[in-house]
């Protein structure tokens, strides 16, 4: 699999990451090497084989684990906001999303 610098930039955008120009080239080369290694999996026929997500409980691959819907108290608001970089008026503050025209 050939990976271009544009591919790296596109994936970085999807992942909300930024890289310097020289990082992108270094990354591209590593990425290509790692992905070629992954391609060894193509040697294996896999048609009709079910995927595994929960390795121990096969039924969990298709179903969810439900509990009784009993209301319980949650953490107090001040404790939840205590770790926020910019809390304010009971909210998480972020840079403005909508511009005034």
């Amino acid at each position: 699999m050939k990976i271009s610098c544009q591919d790296v930039e596109k994936i970085a955008r999807l992942a909300n990451l930024r890289f310097e120009e020289q990082e992108i080239e270094a990354f591209r080369a590593q990425f290509e090497k790692i992905l070629s290694y992954m391609e060894t999996l193509n040697e294996l026929p896999s048609e009709g084989i079910p995927p595994t997500s929960h390795p121990v409980l096969p039924s969990r691959n298709e179903s969810n684990a439900f509990r009784e819907d009993d209301p319980k108290s949650s953490l107090p608001q001040d404790e939840v906001l205590a770790n926020a970089p910019r809390p304010g008026k009971g909210h998480f503050r972020v840079p403005k999303v909508i511009e005034k025209e």
């Binding site: 909300n16 930024r18 770790n83 926020a84 970089p85 910019r86 972020v94 840079p95 403005k96 999303v97």
Partner: peptide, 19 residues
């Protein structure tokens, strides 16, 4: 950078702040 941990100081828009 919203709910906990480090937030880059210089992001002017929400999307810049994230990345």
């Amino acid at each position: 950078g919203v709910k906990y941990g480090y937030r880059a100081p210089e992001g002017a828009t929400l999307s810049d702040m994230y990345s």
